[in-house]
Simulated assay, not measured.
Amino acid sequence: MDNLFLQYMKDRSGQRKSSDVKKKEGGPAITISREYGCHGQRIGQLLAERISEELKKQGVKKEWRMISKEILERSASELKLTPALLEDLSDYKQKSFFENLALFFSQEYYPGDVKIKNTIAKFLHDEAEEGNVVIIGRAGEAITKSIKRSFHVKMEAPLNWRAEVVSKEENLSLSDAKKRCIDQDKRRASFRNYFEKDRPDVDFFDIRINAMSMTDEEIVNLLFCFARSRGFIE
């Protein structure tokens, strides 16, 4: 994995072109990135269950799983942080939080930003290489792009629609829900950009889905068909 991170850093500094990257076999793995308010975890869980059920019918003992928070939990254990604190750090929830934290912890105990991101990336990449997994968020599309048997999905929708969803689910006013969506999208983009280096979505995603115009069932059916066409399911 050290070489992979060196590759990322070389990509960021322009020392290597993306076409130079050799894909590893690994997988199969599916990553789902989502704008805030789109139900990525729900879709991921339903898709993993659907694929597992189909494989079971075929007599294939391969259980697919959906992972999201588990990556933070494993990374937090490695870094000796609580999962909640690690999520705050990786999402840049408060600038003042970093400033205050520096007053209480030395570098010996507080891992730097690069170490946090690389630790998360290591565990995520390991899961994708092991295969039979749907990964939600955490720049999965960029971190696992080197794995040949993978495909990458981005769920998006108009801001007003997402704000309505968040308003109902989190009991917020529409204006507060819209602000929440914008803030969360910025935080996620900041994390992804460490690995993507301002490259366009087309470099990473195979499918982009408008969650407003499709039901959960339709989205799962589409991704299931795509997984089958890629040979993840016989």
Results as ranks from 00 to 15, higher is better:
Asp2Gln: 14
Cys181Gln: 01
Pro83His: 10
Gly140His: 09
Asn132Phe: 13
Leu89Gln: 03
Asp113His: 13
Ser75Pro: 12
Tyr8Asn: 12
Gly14Lys: 09
Arg180Cys: 13
Ala128Thr: 06
Ala29Ser: 11
Gly59Ser: 08
Glu87Lys: 15
Asn171Lys: 15
Ile209Phe: 04
Ser68Cys: 14
Asn221Asp: 15
Met212Lys: 12
Arg162Met: 12
Lys154Leu: 13
Arg192Tyr: 11
His125Asn: 13
Asn118Phe: 14
Glu169Val: 02
Val202His: 11
Arg208Phe: 08
Leu222Asn: 02
Lys80Pro: 00
Ser173Glu: 00
Lys10Ala: 15
Ile233Glu: 09
Leu47Trp: 03
Ser229Gln: 12
Lys95Asp: 07
Asn100Ser: 13
Ser19Asn: 09
Leu6Gly: 15
Lys145Ala: 14
Met9Ile: 10
Asp183Pro: 00
Val153Pro: 12
Glu141Thr: 10
Ala139Asp: 03
Glu170His: 13
Gln45Ser: 15
Lys115Asn: 04
Tyr92Asn: 08
Asp11Ser: 15
Ala121Met: 07
Arg42Ala: 11
Tyr92Thr: 02
Met1Trp: 13
Phe191Lys: 06
Ser173Leu: 13
Asp176Thr: 08
Gln45Arg: 14
Glu218His: 01
Val114Asn: 03
Lys115Tyr: 05
Lys178Ser: 08
Leu55Cys: 05
Pro83Ile: 05
Cys38Met: 00
Thr82Asn: 06
Asn221Lys: 11
Leu85Cys: 01
Arg199Ile: 10
Lys17Thr: 15
Gln107Cys: 05
Arg230Cys: 12
Asp113Glu: 15
Arg208Gln: 14
Pro111Thr: 04
Leu223Gln: 02
Asp20Pro: 07
Gly137Arg: 04
Phe5Ser: 01
Ile43His: 00
Lys62Met: 00
Lys178Arg: 15
Arg162Gly: 03
Phe123Cys: 03
Tyr110Asn: 11
Asp201Met: 00
Thr119Glu: 01
Thr144Asp: 10
Thr119Lys: 08
Asp91Pro: 01
Val21Arg: 05
Lys197Phe: 14
Ile143Lys: 04
Lys117Arg: 15
Leu81Phe: 05
Phe151Asp: 03
Asp183Met: 11
Glu169Ser: 14
Lys117Asn: 05
Arg138Gln: 09
Met1Ile: 07
Gln7Phe: 01
Asp216Thr: 02
Lys93Ala: 03
Gln15His: 07
Glu78Trp: 00
Leu172Gly: 12
Lys56Asn: 07
Met1Asn: 11
Gln15Ser: 12
Ser13Ile: 10
Glu53Thr: 12
Arg162Cys: 06
Ile136Ala: 04
Gly131Glu: 09
Glu54Leu: 12
Glu141Gln: 12
Gly59Ala: 06
Arg199Asp: 13
Met212Cys: 04
Phe104Glu: 10
Cys225Gln: 15
Glu78Arg: 13
Ile51Ser: 01
Met9Arg: 11
Lys22Pro: 07
Leu85Tyr: 07
Ile120Phe: 02
Glu129Asn: 14
Ile219Cys: 02
Asn132Thr: 00
Ser18His: 11
Glu130Trp: 09
Phe151Cys: 12
Ala211Phe: 06
Glu196Cys: 10
Ala102Leu: 14
Ser19Phe: 02
Asn3Lys: 11
Leu86Ile: 07
Leu86Gln: 05
Thr144Asn: 10
Val134Gly: 10
Ala157His: 04
Ser146Tyr: 05
